[in-house]
């Protein structure tokens, strides 16, 4: 061996071969990893339409969207007032009720606790909203986290009113 190691033609060939081999293995492994992601049939069920004409103020329904429960609540005036009067400084995850419910009477959100995914119970908890029985997260009348281990507010899915009676989720 010489004292000074100079890269030779052979070293270049080895490095190039290893690199190409690594790319090849990566390309072969990727389909095996990606097959576990949501497939086309799951993605195809991306939207659901719900008729809410029979819902009275103060009542909620739960519908299934993408395998997850979605709460649709027709809020009472007291609930709206309560949600809008909260100081944003008191919220762990500050969000205005106006941004969460564009039409204040209707609150549409995922019924999935942002802690570990349980379904919170309605009309419960210390803030008259929802309470998650699994690990004790309390949500207010806007579905915002107020107390407990959940890090964020209940998620608002993409939705729109197709007409006054029909909500399209997704």
């Amino acid at each position: 061996m010489s004292e000074e190691k100079k890269p030779k033609r052979r070293d270049f060939l080895f490095t190039a071969s290893y690199a190409l081999g690594a790319v090849g293995v990566g390309a072969a492994v990727w389909p095996l990893v990606d097959q576990m992601n949501p497939d086309q049939s799951v993605k195809a069920l991306a939207s659901t339409e719900v008729d809410v004409s029979s819902l009275e103020p103060g009542k909620s329904i739960t519908v299934l969207w993408r395998g997850k429960p979605v709460f649709i609540r027709r809020r009472t005036q007291e609930e709206i007032a309560e949600a809008r009067s909260v100081d944003l400084k008191d919220l762990p995850h500050p969000e205005k009720d106006e941004d969460r419910a564009k039409n204040p009477e209707w609150l549409v959100m995922l019924g999935v606790c942002t802690h570990l995914g349980c379904v919170p119970l309605g009309d419960k908890g210390e803030y008259n909203g929802w309470f998650c029985p699994c690990h004790g997260s309390h949500y207010d009348t806007s579905g915002r986290i107020r107390k407990g281990p959940a890090p964020t507010n209940l998620e608002i899915p993409k939705y729109e009113f197709v007409n006054t009676n029909i909500i399209k989720i997704g």
Binding site: M36, N37, P38, D39, V42, R66, G67, K68, V112, G117
Partner: peptide, 17 residues
Amino acid sequence: TNWLWGGYAVDNPTLTR
């Protein structure tokens, strides 16, 4: 989590894997 589930919640793809 979506990769683990094969969807947006625990469902049939989760069960089969």
